[in-house]
Design a binder for these strands. Structure first.
Lengths: 166, 166
DNA sequence: ATAGATGCAAATATTTTGCCGCCAG
DNA sequence: CTGGCGGCAAAATATTTGCATCTAT
């Protein structure tokens, strides 16, 4: 049944193992964007992120490195990065309120699969997803620049793994 | 290349033509949920919605029918419907700020395809999408209850339709 | 009759903005 | 040097909650 293999990317740990350190910095300076001390810190936080932090968590992490950084700067830097498509903004199906989460955008799009009971989030890539995007691009006549898929459900663990009969 | 056809659902008009009037009401009462005057109005607004309204717009529409309805009731009713999976919550890639949009959840999931330039939103279904969800369900061991895909890019119109050579 | 809903107002939470002094390039 | 940037405080949005009252069943 399952012809095309599905690639698991991560289950809750950091996702940026394949991300060259300083990638965001490079991207910004190559665009002529001024690299301030505060921005460097926020970028560093984003790159080394465990995962899926909201603005407050990013602020918190940034202040551990440099106490001078303010919430406003975090918002402004996130906006900047978003504008260049260097980070993605998710809400993880609002399983935990209306917060927005951010993550450095890697080379490939991935799907966020979240358990609505335990909150665990897994990230997957799939050739099928790439096919789908190609088809939509062709059929809708659109040059895709951002794609986001979030899927929620109850995971095996939370269903007691006894997915026997049903 | 494109084997599976992609079904266009709508381009900006109402999506609920196939939705039986009173569906949400029926769903709620069958679950033993009390149907108050206010709830009926909000449900009616959701069902007859042109499309993609945020909480304020829903409130506005509801008050046209019954001026007594308050914003709080709208939020509480939306939460209720969300909890039962009867409506979906979208943010349309935050193209227009951080608002959340709601729409009555039809029988099939659909993908929202938005032009990041003109803001036009198109909804599509695709067998490929169903395949993708099946694969993820199988491979991640998850019983999917909600799926949301939002895709952004520049549409033909906004690229001057001159998508000749590339 | 009674559990559960609504309304009001206020509390929270989240994000944005104006203005001025400061710093990266 | 200089124009963009960060900080501060406050505004603008968005969402949630406590409590008294009312109503659908």
């Amino acid at each position: 049944m399952s012809a095309t293999p599905l690639h698991r990317v991560s289950t809750g740990e950091r996702i940026n193992d394949n991300e060259p350190a300083g990638r965001l910095q490079k991207e910004l300076s190559s665009r002529g964007i001024r690299l301030t001390r505060q921005r460097r810190v926020v970028l560093q936080v984003m790159e080394s992120a465990a995962r899926h932090m909201d603005a407050s968590e990013i602020l918190e992490q940034a202040q551990k490195i440099d106490a001078d950084i303010t919430r406003v700067t975090v918002y402004r830097t996130l906006d900047l990065l978003k504008g260049f498509g260097l980070i993605d903004e998710l809400d993880l199906l609002h399983l935990r309120g209306h917060r927005h989460y951010y993550e450095s955008h890697g080379p490939r799009d991935h799907i966020h699969v979240a358990c609505i009971r335990c909150g665990k989030v897994r990230e997957v890539e799939s050739p099928l997803y790439e096919d789908l995007k190609k088809q939509i691009s062709r059929d809708c006549g659109i040059e895709i620049s951002v794609a986001r898929t979030e899927i929620g459900g109850v995971c095996d663990d939370c269903r007691g793994k006894s997915v026997s009969g049903d």
